[in-house]
Computed example of a mutant assay.
Amino acid sequence: MNPGLAFDAVTCLRGGRILFEGLSFALAPGGDGLALEAVGLADLADVPVRLLSTGQRRRAGFARVLASGAPIWLLDEPGNGLDTVSLAMLEARIAAHRAGGGIVLVATHQPIALPDAQEIAL
């Protein structure tokens, strides 16, 4: 392992890997998949990622962010591929993270409800 790469052995959520296997590196030891439950994917934990829809893959990626426990989230187009229910879930999770003192930087072309957020138009 290259000492300069913290996640050298980590691969992306794709191919024949099952969803839980792809997410397991981000879970705390003994983690029970709460991040998957939070994004509505707990029932699909044993499904190969290649069989997931676009929206399910996007939610799986967001589950990795939730499971990381990181205080700062950098989200690039997080609403792409999400239906209205999943977009509402995303907005609620972002709001909860911010309410708990977390920081979220969102780059998006879609409207996402971020009350009291500072907008930077480029």
Rank of each mutant, 00 (worst) to 15 (best):
G69C: 14
L41Y: 11
H109E: 13
D76R: 12
A60T: 04
G40W: 03
L87M: 15
R93H: 15
L51A: 15
G81T: 04
F25E: 08
I72E: 07
I103A: 12
A60D: 02
D76K: 03
Q56S: 04
R58M: 03
R17I: 13
A35E: 09
P115S: 04
L34P: 11
A107Y: 06
D46Y: 04
G81R: 00
G40V: 08
L87W: 02
V39M: 01
L114Y: 06
R98Y: 05
A67G: 03
G101V: 00
G33V: 00
F62M: 02
A107F: 03
S68A: 08
A70P: 08
P111Y: 10
L36A: 00
Q110H: 11
W73N: 06
R14M: 13
I94V: 15
A92D: 12
P71D: 15
A99T: 04
A42L: 05
A35Y: 06
G15P: 08
F20W: 11
A67K: 00
T108K: 01
A45D: 02
V49T: 13
M89L: 12
G79N: 10
T54I: 13
G22M: 01
L114W: 03
G40T: 08
V104C: 12
L23K: 05
A63L: 02
L87T: 13
L51S: 14
L34Q: 15
A42P: 11
D8V: 09
G81I: 08
L23T: 12
V39R: 00
A35S: 12
A26L: 07
R17H: 14
S53R: 10
A99M: 02
L44N: 09
P115Y: 04
R59E: 00
V106P: 10
G102N: 00
L19A: 10
R98P: 09
V47P: 08
G100V: 05
H97I: 01
V10T: 00
D8G: 15
Q56E: 11
D116E: 10
D8N: 10
